[in-house]
Amino acid sequence: MKEILEGIHLNKIFRDGDSLVVAANDVSFTLHEGEFLGIVGESGCGKSTLLRLVSGLIKPDSGELTHDGEAYTGMSPAKTGRFLQMIFQDAYASFDPHMRMHRSILEAAPKNVSEEELVQLLDDLHLEAKLLEKRPGELSGGQCQRMSIARAILSGADILLCDEITSALDVVTEAQIVSLLQGIRQKREFSMMFVSHNIALVSQLCDRMIVMHDGQIVEAGTTKELLENPKQEYTKKLIASSRMQSL
């Protein structure tokens, strides 16, 4: 599979008062075309920092990022938006509360997107077209998050960066979004980096997984390898605990 995105020896240190927090410590990864890559770990492990580095929201202290073989380290989010789009945990906060969904969603889309294309995508996400007339506050959490997925896909970017996108939703809505993402994957070409603390969820959705701890990648591999044969002690503990907290 072709490599579409690569992070090479990424480092990022934040200052918190007098102390330094190493949020990314020599992080290297590869995302292949069409792949769903899960990034798991506990609070503060650096998984959200990694997505922010990749998206250009924050700049690495050192290291390099490439898209399709071309370096884009230091590129602003406005420019990275052409090939990647970030989706956040709080869907409401990622829309202008005063703007109708129709306008919000088309804002990031290329000019030539047709109304049919928009309605088809909404249909794929089980959203009724009439919801386009609503403002974010009038939608449920699940509807609003599906709208932000629609906006990201419609923008023409072929990489989605998802940061805990189902964590604020109830389990039934969460399962629906995961199954919609799996469904859309059959119809459209896109790759995804999916950050979540929920390993069971990631195991159902992603082809490969990266386990992070203290700003470092502890272990990476196919979902099957990691679940069935974790090598590192931390991964073993994380997976064993997750098994005891899922069905």
Binding site: V171, I199, A200, L201, T223, S246
Partner: peptide
């Protein structure tokens, strides 16, 4: 309850809960 849920909502919850699977 887990093996033989009776109520429709329980069934929905059980179907939705993520499971560890590769």
């Amino acid at each position: 309850v887990i093996d033989h849920p009776q109520h429709a909502y329980t069934k929905q919850l059980l179907e939705s809960a993520p499971r560890m699977s590769a």
